[in-house]
């Protein structure tokens, strides 16, 4: 079975390589700052021993104070997994760096998050609405929609 890695331990490793990048960490997940997301993701993918080569899922949650993007990563090589998160505090124009260059699976997932949550992914090759049609007003999965 896939082993869920302890977020606190991974957070220490991340903090060694990229100081000030970890915003919060507990056993379940690592929260990194918005600016350092791409660097941390690249670190997690390419570091021997971690090798997170597979993106299971990319989704977003609206906590009213902030929007949180959640990455479920796992390694097929070591059979372990990790939850990586990042937060956007600007509701009007939340921006997160795209991870499509690292994991191709992020392509549709980021489009879906953009469509339903309104989070812009910087560097995405084809960021347009996926489920709803062009010109739809609003982002329906936000809690202040309607």
């Amino acid at each position: 079975m896939t082993v869920a890695l302890n977020g606190e331990e991974i957070a220490k490793k991340i903090a060694e390589a990229y100081p000030d990048s970890v915003a919060a960490a507990d056993k379940a997940a690592v929260v990194v700052t918005n600016q350092s997301l791409y660097a941390v993701a690249e670190f997690l993918k390419s570091t021997p021993g971690l090798d997170f080569d597979y993106l299971n899922d990319l989704t977003a949650v609206d906590y009213l104070d902030y929007l949180e993007v959640v990455y479920h990563l796992s390694s097929l090589k070591h059979n372990h997994s990790l939850v990586l998160k990042t937060r956007c505090y600007k509701r009007e124009e939340p921006v997160v760096t795209s991870v499509v260059r690292l994991w191709r699976a992020a392509d549709y997932q980021e489009r879906e998050v953009y469509d339903l949550m309104g989070i812009t992914f910087e560097g995405h090759p084809n960021l347009k609405r996926l489920l709803l049609w062009e010109g739809f007003v609003g982002h329906p999965l936000r809690r202040d929609y309607l």
């Binding site: 347009k128 609405r129 049609w133 062009e134 010109g135 739809f136």
Partner: peptide
């Protein structure tokens, strides 16, 4: 592709 999207959206609307 953008023109196709816009045409589809106008059909739906």
């Amino acid at each position: 592709p953008h023109e196709i999207d816009v045409a589809e959206a106008s059909r739906i609307e």
